[in-house]
């Protein structure tokens, strides 16, 4: 498994533990903690960001492809290329907006722990940046005519 997938499953485990801890404190110890909800949400967002690219690569983003099957293959490939370019434009804009969002996050503090929200917001440019890399890979494959999906090795360290 890649580093990002490893981090993601640890985050899932931490999410579960955080909420179970909250349940324990609230119902068993009768005193709630202020931070678990916000912390668990931060874990969830980072979890999503770390595996989104791989999910995109594996085809988890559903699309209607009935039109493609009715077209001549060459035309279908051209249409697919166009759609990939649209997706790339969307991802690129999301990535740059994500960076601005991150920078602005230094002005806001998390409500229940002493950290700027920027460190949560950073997940967004990471998410869309890595998806953009996958998207570029898909465009290149389309251009080279390699339509068949191959097992994906995400760049490590992202």
């Amino acid at each position: 498994m890649t580093i990002s997938a490893n981090m993601a499953w640890v985050l899932v485990a931490l999410m579960v533990l955080t909420i179970l801890l909250q349940v324990f404190c609230r119902y068993v110890l009768n005193s709630a903690l202020p931070w678990p909800e916000e912390v668990a949400r931060a874990f969830m967002i980072w979890m999503m960001a770390l595996v989104a690219a791989q999910a995109y690569h594996n085809g988890s983003f559903v699309a209607i492809d009935m039109l493609h099957e009715m077209m001549p293959p060459a035309l279908a490939r051209l249409l697919k290329l166009l759609l990939l370019v649209i997706a790339a434009l969307v991802l690129f804009r999301l990535f740059t907006l994500g960076l601005e969002f991150f920078e602005r996050g230094f002005r806001t503090r998390a409500a229940s722990f002493k950290l700027p929200r920027a460190w949560i917001y950073l997940a967004m440019p990471v998410c869309f940046g890595t998806m953009l890399l996958v998207n570029i890979e898909l465009i290149l494959k389309n251009l080279l005519g390699l339509a068949a999906p191959t097992p994906y090795q995400a760049p490590t360290g992202d």
Partner: peptide, 8 residues
């Protein structure tokens, strides 16, 4: 309908 994934 052209086949762009729902998210995009």
């Amino acid at each position: 309908l052209l086949g762009l994934p729902v998210f995009f």
